[in-house]
Every structure is written in C-alpha cells, then in structure tokens.
C-alpha cells in the first residue's frame, strides 16, 4: 500500500483505510482471457458504434421539427382567427326570406348584401357589436350546453335571473345620445327573439322556438349558419336547404 498523506497532510493512518486493505481480493475466472477474446472476435460493442450523423444534426433536426410544428400550429390559428367572421352575412346570390307576416305563398326573393365587411367600415360603425363566437361552441355544442346547465358555472342565462340588480346612481332623466351604440351579443339577440339552440352561434342546432321565431318560421332542428344582429338576418339550414329569416 502506498504511504501517502491524507487530506489533513498526515500520513495515512485511517482505520477504514487499514480495514479495507485487509479485504480478500477476488480473482477472475480462469477462462477470463478466452471470454474476452471471444467477445473481441464478435466485434465492436453495440454502444460503441457511432452514428454517421454529427451530434449537432442528431439533436438539431428533431428540435427544428418541434419548433416548426409549434410555430405552424400557432401561426395557422393566428392567421385564421378572424373575430368578425361569425357575425358575417355570407354573400349569396338569392335566398329565400320569409317575413313575419308572410304566408308560404308570399316568399320573396331578395338580394343579400354583397359586402362581407358589413359591420367593419369605420364610417358605418355598427350600433350592435358583433359577438366573437368561440370555435369550441361550434365544434362541441352539446358540451357547451351541458356546461351552461351547471348552476354557478358562469352561464349568463342562469346567472342573470339570480343576480342582484344594481341601479346606478345616475340621473335617468338625462338625455341619451342618439348615436349611442347598443351592445348586444348574438346570444342575447337570439334569446330575445325566442330561439333556443344547442349553441348560440354558427353550427348550433335550434332546439326550441317561441314568440317571434315561431312567427317568422324558424323550426326546431334548423341548424344556424350565420347570424347578423345588425340586420336581424339569420340563415339556417333545413333538410339540406339554406334559408334566411329576418327576426326584426
């Protein structure tokens, strides 16, 4: 055993050092060399085989793919995320419009507005703000409805009747400006028109109708395609046919 100085600069006198020095030494088996030779003859160990790709490429390529995927996903969402899209009235050459008082024989054929940016022109600011409809509503209408049924789950329909009405301390007699915008969402518009749908937006199926909605001819089972709260037009699909109704 080599006599050396320990960490404290003293000669090696540690008890453990002496104890471990007395341990029996194990010897390899007699065929040790032959086994090593046999392994060598088999070839290089698998772990030793190097990939032909440089290390940088091996790590950079998967990383690049991950970054590309993430960027593409969010980029696509940003590009396709148009807040005003759900309140558009689609351009269509001619559609059927049923007025509240009209009989089936009195179906008129009218031209819908050709301008998709109906509510977005600065000079013609809409008095009714277009509601941005979450795509989840369209994809999973049933799930959304279920969520709305939960008490205290944030549903406006449930919360509104239970909420306390707070009267602002303002002078009601003060004149309201004529051009003051009235903010109303698609949900509120449909609800006020007597339409109850699985989702109050495009893609929702009308479950029940009442009041004005019955009068104009909307029926349960119609699937909402577009709603324009400004003009009061609602376009639905019934038995494969697209129909438009005016709710105001």
């Amino acid at each position: 055993m080599v006599k050396e100085k320990n960490i404290y600069g003293e000669p090696e006198t540690d008890e453990i050092h002496r104890l471990l020095g007395t341990l029996k030494r194990v010897e390899p088996p007699k065929d040790f060399d032959l086994r090593v030779r046999a392994r060598i003859a088999k070839g290089r160990p698998a772990e030793e085989r190097r990939s032909w790709l440089p290390v940088s490429v091996r790590y950079a390529a998967p990383l690049f793919l991950v970054v590309l995927t993430v960027t593409g996903f969010f980029g696509y969402r940003i590009l396709t995320d148009d807040p005003a899209r759900d309140s558009y009235v689609s351009t269509g050459p001619t559609v059927e419009v049923v007025t509240p008082a009209a009989q089936p024989s009195e179906i008129q054929r009218v031209q819908e507005p050709a301008n998709d940016t109906l509510a977005l022109l600065p000079s013609e600011k809409p008095t009714i703000a277009p509601e941005r409809v979450d795509r989840k509503d369209a994809i999973k209408p049933a799930a959304q409805e279920k969520k709305n049924e939960k008490p205290g789950g944030g549903s406006y329909e449930i919360a509104a009747p239970e909420s306390k009405v707070i009267t602002p301390d303002v002078d009601d007699s003060a004149p309201v400006p004529a051009n003051r915008p009235v903010l109303i969402s698609v949900r509120e518009f449909l609800a006020s028109s007597g339409v109850s749908a699985s989702a109050m937006s495009a893609g929702g199926e009308i479950r029940s109708v009442s009041g004005k909605a019955v009068a104009v001819g909307l029926q349960p089972g119609d699937v909402i395609e577009t709603v324009n709260v400004q003009t009061g037009l609602i376009r639905v699909k019934r038995d494969g046919k697209t129909m438009s109704f005016r709710l105001r």
């Binding site: 540690d14 050092h17 471990l20 020095g21």
Partner: peptide, 8 residues
C-alpha cells in the same frame, strides 16, 4: 484508494 491502493 483504500482497496486498490491507488495514489491520490
């Protein structure tokens, strides 16, 4: 160090 007796 202690079993194989290698130097520090």
């Amino acid at each position: 160090r202690d079993v194989e007796g290698r130097s520090y």
